[in-house]
Design a protein around this nucleic acid. Sequence first.
DNA 1: CGATTTGGACAGCCATATTGACACATTTTT
DNA 2: AAAAATGTGTCAATATGGCTGTCCAAATCG
Lengths: 201, 201
Amino acid sequence: MPAMPEQTDPKPDTEPAATTSAPVGAGRNLLFLREEELRLAQDLLFFGYRDFTAGADQLLAELGMGRAHHRVLHFVGRRPGITVGELLGILGITKQSLGRVLTPLVEEAYVQQSAGRNDRRQRLLSLTPKGEALERRLFERQREWVMRAYREAGPVAVDGFRRVMRGLMGPAARQQLERLEQKDARPSTGRPRDTHLAPIG
Amino acid sequence: MPAMPEQTDPKPDTEPAATTSAPVGAGRNLLFLREEELRLAQDLLFFGYRDFTAGADQLLAELGMGRAHHRVLHFVGRRPGITVGELLGILGITKQSLGRVLTPLVEEAYVQQSAGRNDRRQRLLSLTPKGEALERRLFERQREWVMRAYREAGPVAVDGFRRVMRGLMGPAARQQLERLEQKDARPSTGRPRDTHLAPIG
DNA sequence: CGATTTGGACAGCCATATTGACACATTTTT
DNA sequence: AAAAATGTGTCAATATGGCTGTCCAAATCG
């Protein structure tokens, strides 16, 4: 494994204006995004996102599932008791599209539904133990991968990464992320908050 | 491979508590990746990548194209004179999958082919003026978006973002990125290096 | 009560990816 | 020169994950 990219960004940029690792002087940081910098950003996002998902994708493929299933497992695990409508809002897909991954997940007992306590039309979604186990396996795959990247980059870089990624999100996504983070103090396991798991139908 | 165990971490965390919790005392940054931190990373990557591509996707949809077409335009524009084989390596897809986006792009004169100068079996790909124009329109969309995120986050964060994204890439992708960056000093326009544009067939 | 909301079911379409098999020109090897 | 390998193109079949549209049931709201 030769030639690890240097942390110190060796690119001997021809510009004296030092655009790459921009001077922290924070004075002219309004115009430091030149063409090549954006092209680099495009490359980084393409390769980085692809390889980030690769590990989990492989595991999913063995189970006959795809990334869409993972997303459902992830967000249902993140917010046990989430309604179908909320999940649709987060994923940004249509009800029909969701149905095609959610229905099998319910049928194969990865996800369970229960009627809403206030509004009995709602189906509150949560992971079954089986679903939790799978989600955790997927999680661990990505954990290894991200841990390595974070460790190599260091905490300051991680903070910068988070700031930029947040900035790449649109207003709707930011709001959704906030809600997810609120709930981060989630109960020890995936039971909906205080819902009395009423049977459906 | 230096392994980068601790990564000197220049400033002992000038960050506002943003780094979630974890004592960032720069000593124990090996273990600062707790569960919620990774879940956050997953969310950020999902939302961020989705919204990053949203603008270009919309424009592409109007032209009856998809993200796959954009990727071809991007990487061909990045490395004029690239061979089909190299492009396949970068995209990580099969020849058949590439063919179904590349062939239309050639037919509609966004991309042009010419025979390799050393190996006449090769088809060297480059953007036509029409292709360059479209690529630029797509580029500008994303440029606006990324510029905003970069500006909001500041140069230090951008540097961190780059480090982490690089870290998320696997060895193969890192090598490919290096090659792309080498060529970054590319000629003013998309003519293959010194190829004498031999006709095909 | 009727209207709206929430969720689900079914049909079909499209884009992107896959694999396998085969064809063809060209280059390299024997 | 013949054989093998390489680079590319193409056909057919299949899967996944989106989309739209329509219709329906249950529950809530006014």
